[in-house]
């Protein structure tokens, strides 16, 4: 049994089908990536797992439990945390508060403090600015904060929706090495990336989504060498 099993998932927005029966698995401890063009339905998939968007039909199983159309609040309590597309930090809360609110459902005070310390270690920039209102952070800093906040939930499965969007190349590299470190901490990662090359490089498994359907899957490295994937998503490399 996989940690997460998505079967025949349909989602539509007012009659327009965004997901047309996708199925995929996420194995415990893996980094799994979904790649695809804009509008393919990647964010919809994660939002549906998180309970923000309702499934029209199909099942999502997490640890054997059906979680499709469960309240977001319950999904988080099961150990799934989403770092949403476009950062979505709370601008009126301080950096520290944004991190603490990530741990909203946790009761283990001492471990929350310990996790806070670890996240400051991962992103020293956040510690320097812990009293600043998150709305005044730079875009890249907000992105780090969003990732840190997702980790503060101490999730078993961390879902990241384009965590490197809008970051400088050096920071993009940092984000990817942090994702690998998150995996090394024993967490499972479901990753969406525009930067397909980098994502496929670190992914144990990858799925290619095109207009609401999965058209290809395989190990990350395998898809890196796939001619169709190269042509469509990796750009021409001289």
């Amino acid at each position: 049994m996989s940690l997460l099993e998505v079967r025949d998932l349909y989602v539509s927005y007012g009659g327009i089908e965004a997901l047309k029966g996708i199925s995929f698995d996420v194995e415990e401890g893996d980094i799994v990536t979904l790649i695809g063009a804009n509008g393919a339905g990647k964010s919809t998939t994660l939002n549906c797992i998180s309970g923000l968007v309702r499934a029209a039909s199909g099942t999502i199983r997490y640890n054997g439990e059906e979680i499709q159309n469960m309240d977001s609040q319950k999904v988080v309590s099961r150990g799934i945390s989403l770092v949403p597309e476009g950062r979505k930090v709370f601008p009126n809360l301080t950096v520290r508060e944004n991190l603490l609110i990530g741990a909203y459902l946790r009761k283990d005070k001492a471990e929350i403090q310990e996790d806070l310390r670890k996240i400051y270690e991962l992103f020293p920039r956040l510690e320097e600015r812990h009293w600043q209102a998150a709305g005044t952070l730079s875009g890249g800093e907000q992105q780090m904060l969003a990732v840190g906040r997702g980790l503060m939930a101490s999730p078993h499965l961390l879902m990241l929706d384009e965590p490197s969007l809008g970051l400088a190349p050096q920071l993009v590299k940092d984000i990817f090495s942090i994702i690998v470190r998150i995996q090394e901490m024993g967490k499972t990662v479901l990753l969406i990336e525009q930067n397909a090359n980098a994502a496929l490089n670190i992914a144990n498994r990858a799925y290619v989504l095109s207009t609401g359907e999965i058209i290809k899957s395989g190990a990350g490295k395998e898809l890196l060498d796939d001619q169709d994937v190269k042509d469509a998503y990796l750009g021409v490399q001289a």
């Binding site: 977001s72 945390s81 609110i101 909203y104």
Partner: peptide, 8 residues
């Protein structure tokens, strides 16, 4: 929506 994602 983001508040819901925090478990609120």
């Amino acid at each position: 929506d983001t508040s819901k994602l925090m478990g609120i």
